[in-house]
Every structure is written in structure tokens, then in C-alpha cells.
Design a protein around this nucleic acid. Structure first.
Lengths: 150, 150
DNA sequence: CCCAAAATGTAGCCGTGGCTACAATGCAAG
DNA sequence: CTTGCATTGTAGCCACGGCTACATTTTGGG
């Protein structure tokens, strides 16, 4: 129970990278090129922040750039972006299927997506495809914790 | 769609505080006192890190301390801890109800809990109490995104 | 063709949350 | 009562992800 938090911590390291490559891939798909300015407006940060973050992405082999040129995703970056997109969409549609409004689902999925394990993703996929699992175990869940959120 | 990410970012600011007060409250319940050393082992960080973080908690009015004394939660800190605990337990039992193993549910819930809106929490509670919502809409979800995780 | 505006890059600052190394304190055993 | 060890505090370092201010480059309109 003690070491579980450290996993959460190290997730943070890759969150920004994931958000960026996902955004870059999406912008590339619609704009054919992706420039820093696009990321500035996407993330509502300054160009200085984008520049520094992109430098880290280059360092980590996710993006390639020449000075004053648009951004290019490496194969590694493209792979990561596709993975993140799939995960993101799965989480978002799961939330919608739960009955959460599309707007809230969009917001929440962006926060949640980085913290969902493959196991949980599989469970989401299974439920979307085959329905909620335990129609018998459902009963035994009523008294588990005090499920009385404010 | 652009501003949604900034919400996620600002969540980070309060994540650590929430993790700490939740841990402190839990330790207080079992140990009757909470010392820095308890947080050191709980979070697997050094005492210097705990000390600095606790200083921020004090600054933010969540914790009170005297030098070389155990930690005390303020009313505000206690309130926040209770809120987080409830939210954490709800997310965790929802994951278990989804069919995720208890171990994975514990880990994932620690990452997820900070990013779940009240709306989504309500949806989780509703599903735990009244079952999966839309047994008729379930069909129309099959072709939504390409739900074909790795 | 040139020049202004847009885009990009750079320098330097801040807060958070890590770390190591070391100082100071509290407590318990002898 | 002292002394050693556990605990707590402090100093100073680092990376990340923000920011402002300013420099540089690209590019489009006159």
C-alpha cells in the first residue's frame, strides 16, 4: 500500500509528453503541419513553455525539429500518440456510457487517462462490448463502503 | 477543448496536499498520532521531502505543527481528508465492481481519484446502487470509437 | 524588395516535489 | 544524568512546467 503512490508520481513525468504527442498527432491530421503556435493555443500556455516542453520531447526522441520549422513526430512519438488516443477515446466513451455528460466526459477523461492501467482499460472495453459484468455480485456491493458521496 | 487541459494542470497543485491529508487522517485513526516518519514510509520519500511538503500544508492551513512534534490536522485538513477518503473509496469500489482486481483497483484509484468530477462520482455511485444505466443504449455503443485496445 | 507582424528561440525567474548531506532536537537505555 | 540513536529540521542541489521580457527568424503585404 505504501509503494502504490510512487507509481502515480512517476506517471506525472510522462503525462505532459503524452498530452503533447497526442495533440501534435491530432493537429497534424487536420492541419497537415503542426507548429508551436498551435500547441500554445491548444494548451493555453506561453510559447516559452511550449518551446521548453518540445525540447524535452526532442530529447526523449518523440519529436524532431529544425529551428523555426514545424514539429515532426518520430516513429516513437507517432506510436505513443496512437496509443494515447486509443486509451483516451476508450476512457471518454466509457464515461459517456456511464451516463456522464459528453462535456464532463471530455474534461474528466483528460485527467483520468494517464492513470488507468491496462487491466482497467480491458475492463472498460469489456463492459462497453458485453455490458456490466456482475449482475449477481451487484447485490453484495451495496453495503461495501459507505457510498454516500455528498 | 483547449481549456480542458488547464483544469487537469491545476489539479496537480492539490493532489499532493490531498494525498497527504488523507494519509495523515488514516495514520491518526490507527496510530493516534502521526509523525513525519510515518509519511516517509507511506510515500517512500525522504524526510526532507516530507518536511517541505508539510510546510506547504501548514502554509495552506491544512496542518498545524510545533517543531519536533507530531502533526495535527486542522478542521479544514480534516474536512478535506474525509472528502478525499470518501471519493477514494467510491472510485476504488467502482473499479472492483467493474471487475478489476482489488490490487489494481487500489493502485489505479490512487491515480484516478484526483481527476474525477462530482458528476462522474455521482454516476459511479448511481451505478453501484442501481446498476449500469442504459441497457438499451448499450447496443449503440459498439461502433462508436474503435474500441480495440492493444 | 523591404519592412512589419507573426512565429520561434533564449534568458532568467518562480513554485513544486524530488534528492543528499548535515545540524539540531527528543527520548530512552544504561 | 549522560549519551547515543531515532526523529526532525535546514541548506542546497536538480528537473519539470509555468511565467515575462526580449532577441531572432520567417513570411506576407504594400
Amino acid at each position: 500500500m505504501s509503494s502504490a503512490l510512487s507509481k502515480t508520481r512517476q506517471d506525472h513525468a510522462t503525462e505532459t509528453a503524452e498530452d503533447y504527442v497526442e495533440a501534435i498527432a491530432e493537429i497534424l491530421k487536420t492541419n497537415s503541419v503542426c507548429r508551436c503556435v498551435d500547441l500554445v493555443s491548444r494548451f493555453s500556455v506561453t510559447n516559452a513553455t511550449v518551446n521548453k516542453t518540445v525540447a524535452r520531447l526532442v530529447r526523449d526522441g518523440l519529436v524532431e525539429t529544425q529551428p523555426y520549422r514545424p514539429l515532426v513526430l518520430t516513429a516513437k512519438g507517432t506510436r505513443l500518440a496512437a496509443e494515447c488516443k486509443k486509451r483516451h477515446e476508450l476512457v471518454e466513451s466509457f464515461l459517456v456510457a456511464m451516463g456522464v455528460s459528453p462535456e464532463i466526459a471530455t474534461t474528466d477523461s483528460e485527467g483520468i487517462e494517464h492513470h488507468v492501467s491496462k487491466d482497467t482499460l480491458r475492463a472498460m472495453k469489456r463492459i462497453l462490448e458485453s455490458g456490466w459484468p456482475i449482475h449477481q455480485a451487484n447485490e453484495s456491493l451495496h453495503q461495501k463502503p459507505s457510498v454516500d458521496a455528498e
